[in-house]
Design a protein around this nucleic acid. Structure first.
Length: 625
RNA sequence: GCCCUUGUAGCUCAGUGGUAGAGCACUCCCUUGGUAAGGGAGAGGUCACGAGUUCAAAUCUCGUCAAGGGCUCCA
């Protein structure tokens, strides 16, 4: 991880890089990339290695499992994989034997040779081997048809490039990682194949670094930290994909929501609360029943009507808009809601907080005039930046998706809307990529991905124009000329899903939350029971000042209290002994800022309250008193 | 939904057909200890759930549920 403030801004990455406090005191474990790992796309040799490795894998598999048929085997960002059709599924135990066989092949220093053959020749050779998938691949290939031999006994259709011989592959720099099911051509109606994933590098050191990063990702895994820090759980008895926020997680969520509301009011939004269920007919009108049904929970019978658990908030905001006759003078109307929605996800796709069946969108809908689009989008971009940067996300990747082939709405409206998005992005000064034809059928959109502390990109924010719902619900306003006109509708979310964003936050900070966001900000550690009375009084004063403080009454020795506090990643530990009780002070140990020395209780309270007010990552004791 | 793997105490895990285990956490006792684990005792499990095989099942078989790695999906 690059230290905060040293943000990598690539061509498509936009965003401000503000001056940041140096964070040299962050726990060493949060730190970083000692070794730079080469990317396949940047290293020609690595690409050859990985390409060749997948052939070695395929040859090894066919040696050990003669009935296995080959399909495709490309490289990936960290290695390679190969899909096989084998009568028996491979097990993880098979990987060991396969790896051993690969080692043998590598040790033989077999040459890889490129052969250019005619289509007929290729067909003849493939047919001789009973490889139907390969034949199907051949049918899709353009001339020249090339194949690569691996020694004298094995070959595969391949465009290359490859290493000259397997001696260039380092047997200590690859690993077979997992087996997985995969569909032929990625199509679930087609045959299920067995995919073997591997990782391969130029040197054993790079392999070791790759493993270290995998462990780092595991260490940050929000599911693990969610349990360790007691933030949330998912309960078997309640069902998959349904989140239980524990007090510590709930406290953080509340802080996030409070900030979100504050920022929205400041940006000219009003808030709505709307129902979680409603008459099914609403979803007929909106069109969701036609094209979103497989993602919806089934309807429930209530009295003589059918009710539907909501998978979206928009129809409710639309109904609220339509509740009364609107004037052009009222527009733009900006309404936001932390709206909890329920979507049916297929079994096997749920993943911690990242993919769930019940989640809360930070949803908002803007109803505006066509000529207001650019300003409104710019406003959303500004608000997005304000909110995301508060959580230390400063690096964004922005995509603008334009009209797809199948779409509704008039050309002029699409043109106007797309231009509005472009204008706003230009005015914001953000770089962006254009995904031509990638928009929804009902309007163009902007998607924003954020980069986390270890370089992973997460899509959270989305801004979508919608020509469909205003039409379906016949929304209108009275224009200046007295005629009725249809408003433009903008959907937007900044976090996307609060659950998912929370998971991303946990991983981004590795559980080491900034002071303002930490569920427990200060833990008081009494050296002996003698000072418990003093500690109680300090605790009461901290709480009265709105500081999330606790007192460790476990009676353990200081070393143990410190250890427990550090393991729980509490930002501030306040040691209280006879000396502190005497002088009315606290000895502070900060997770991010190191030893802060002994400070007066009043100064701690002032600094902590001030840090909360400013949503600061740590205390500023110098300016507190 | 599909493929592989897994499910034993709150957490991490051992236990391969014959009386259910460890460390941490928890409770109590001793210790009043100054910056990452003081000592002792105790409590805690329908071995995910259901069926089957067996004299006997945490262990073997089948099914269900859930989790992990992927595929597919995420207009």
């Amino acid at each position: 991880m690059a230290p905060p403030g040293d943000v990598n801004v690539s061509a498509v990455v936009a965003g401000t890089v503000p001056e940041r406090q140096p964070s040299a005191h962050l726990p060493a474990s949060i730190d970083p990339q000692a070794i730079q790992l080469p990317k396949t796309s940047e290293s020609a040799q690595l690409l050859r290695i990985r390409h060749s490795m997948s052939h070695v894998l395929a040859m090894a598999v066919q040696t050990l499992f003669p009935r296995a048929q080959v399909t495709i085997g490309p490289w990936t960002e960290t290695g390679f994989y190969y899909d096989f059709d084998n009568p028996e599924p491979f097990t993880e135990a098979d990987l060991k034997a396969i790896k051993k066989e690969m080692g043998k092949i590598i040790g033989r220093r077999l040459p890889l040779e490129r052969l250019e053959v005619s289509r007929e020749e290729a067909e003849r050779r493939i047919s001789a081997q009973n490889e139907p998938y390969k034949l199907e691949i051949l049918a899709g290939l353009k001339e020249p048809i090339t194949l690569y031999t691996l020694g004298s006994e094995w070959w595969d259709l391949c465009a290359g490039p490859h290493v000259a011989h397997t001696g260039e592959l380092n047997p200590k720099a690859f690993e077979l990682e997992s087996v997985a099911g995969a569909y032929w051509r990625g199509d679930e109606t087609k045959a299920q194949l067995q995919r073997i994933y591997g990782t391969a590098w130029e040197t054993p050191e790079q392999l070791a670094e790759h493993k270290r990063r995998k462990e780092e990702a595991l260490r940050r895994d929000h599911r693990r930290l969610g349990t360790d820090l007691d933030l949330f759980s998912i309960e078997d008895e309640a069902g998959a994909g349904l989140v239980f926020w524990h007090p510590r997680g709930a406290r953080m969520r509340l802080l996030i929501e409070e900030f979100w509301r504050e920022a929205h009011f400041a940006a000219g939004y009003e808030l709505l609360y709307t129902p979680h269920v409603a008459d099914l007919s609403l979803w007929k009108t909106s069109g969701h029943l036609d094209f979103y049904k497989e993602s919806m929970f089934g309807p429930m019978d209530v009295d003589e009507r059918q009710f539907q658990l909501r998978p979206m908030n928009c129809p409710f905001h639309v109904l609220t808009y339509a509740n009364t006759l609107r004037s052009y003078r009222e527009l733009p109307i900006r309404w936001a809601e932390l709206g909890t929605v329920y979507r049916y996800e297929r079994p096997g796709v749920m993943h911690g907080l990242m993919r769930v069946r019940g989640f809360t969108q930070d949803d908002a809908h803007i109803f505006c005039l066509p000529e207001q689009i650019s300003d409104e989008i710019l406003g959303v971009l500004n608000l997005t930046e304000t909110i995301l940067s508060t959580f230390d996300f400063h690096s964004y990747e922005v995509n603008l998706s334009t009209r797809p082939a199948k779409s509704i709405g008039e050309d002029a409206v699409w043109e106007l809307a797309t231009q509005g998005l472009v204008d706003a992005l230009e005015r914001k000064g953000w770089n962006y990529k254009i995904d031509e034809g990638g928009g929804a059928f009902y309007g163009p959109k902007i998607d924003i991905k954020i980069e986390d502390a270890i370089g992973r990109m997460w899509q959270c924010s989305t801004i979508q124009l919608d020509f469909n719902l205003p039409e379906r619900f016949a929304l209108e306003y009275v224009a200046a000329d007295g005629n009725r006109a249809q408003p433009i509708m903008i959907h937007r979310a900044i976090f996307g899903s609060l659950e998912r964003f929370f998971g991303i936050l946990v991983e981004n900070y590795a559980g080491d939350f900034p002071f303002w966001l930490a569920p427990e900000q200060v833990r008081l550690l009494p050296v002996t029971d003698e000072v418990l009375g003093f500690a109680e009084s300090v605790l009461a004063r901290l709480k009265a000042a709105g500081v999330r403080a606790s007192l460790d009454r476990s009676g353990e020795r200081l070393g143990k209290l410190i250890r427990n506090g550090e393991q729980q990643k509490i930002p501030l530990l306040g040691v209280l002994g006879a000396a502190e009780a005497e002088s009315g002070s606290v000895n502070l140990r900060s997770r991010r800022q190191g030893d802060l020395g002994t400070v007066a209780v009043a100064d701690l309270i002032a600094a902590a309250a001030s840090a909360n007010g400013q949503r600061a990552p740590g205390l500023d004791l110098a300016t507190a008193s």
